[in-house]
Every structure is written in C-alpha cells, then in structure tokens.
Amino acid sequence: MSRIILSFLGSLCPAVLLNTERKNLIWAGLSGTLGMLINDRILAMFPNTALLAVFFGTATVAVYSELMARVRKTPATIFLIPGIIPLVPGVDAYRTIQLIAERDYPTAMSYAVSAVAKACLIAFGIMTVSAVFRKINRSKKHVSGP
C-alpha cells in the first residue's frame, strides 16, 4: 500500500515539475503507479527478470497513456513521460559512472549493459504500442470515412 502511494507521488511530483496541466495531474500520477505495480508484480512472480518487468511495465504505461489521450483529448506524451519516470534507467547510468570512477570495471560493465538494455526496451515498448494504436486509429477512420 505504501508503495502505491510512493509511486503515485513519484510520478505526480515530476509531472508538476514538467508543468503538466492541473486537470491532467492526477491521471499522470496514476500512470506511474500502474507501471510500477506491474513491474513489481512481475518481479515478484519471476525473480531475475528485471528487463522483462521493465518492458511490461512500460507497455502498460503506454497503453494507459494512449487510452487516456483518447479520453482527455491530449497527446499521449502528457501521461507517458511522468509514467516512465519510475522505470527509466537513470540510476543505472549514474551507478555506471560511479563504478568506473571507483575502478570496478566488471560491475560497471554490467550496470552499463543493464542501463542500455532498459532504455532500449522502454523505447521499444512505447514505439510498439503507439504503432498499434496508430494502425487501429487509421483503419477506424478508413471505415467511417466517405
């Protein structure tokens, strides 16, 4: 329960710092909570699958953002960027630099790989979901058009 509140705060407050409009703030916060919950759930079910968990967390956030974008008539980015903030590998990247400075190269390498892989998976998740939604949108327009 505390984790739900924390992850809600952890993407609501960045949303304020990124200047999201007041009426969208709550929904931006919820998007982060959702991503974090899925991420935690998968990690609890299958340990040692951090990358898979991040991918499915992102996919959930992306689907949620696309749906909310339809409901609230804004671009999906408004909910997407705050939503992925708990998932992005900023800390891994920082840890890499720190370990290189401490001359612990093997561990630094593993953190670097994890940072790059997470960033790639998050980008890939977002792109896949938005491609699917674009396709659905276009075919719907095609049917209802003259």
Binding site: I81, I85, V88, V91, A93, A115, A119, I122, A123
Partner: peptide, 12 residues
C-alpha cells in the same frame, strides 16, 4: 537531474 528520460527519448 538523471537523464533516464533523455536516454529513452534518444533511443526512440
């Protein structure tokens, strides 16, 4: 300040 979102946007 960590560039997690920037990294992701770059790869996107």
């Amino acid at each position: 300040f960590l560039p997690g979102v920037a990294m992701t946007n770059g790869i996107r």
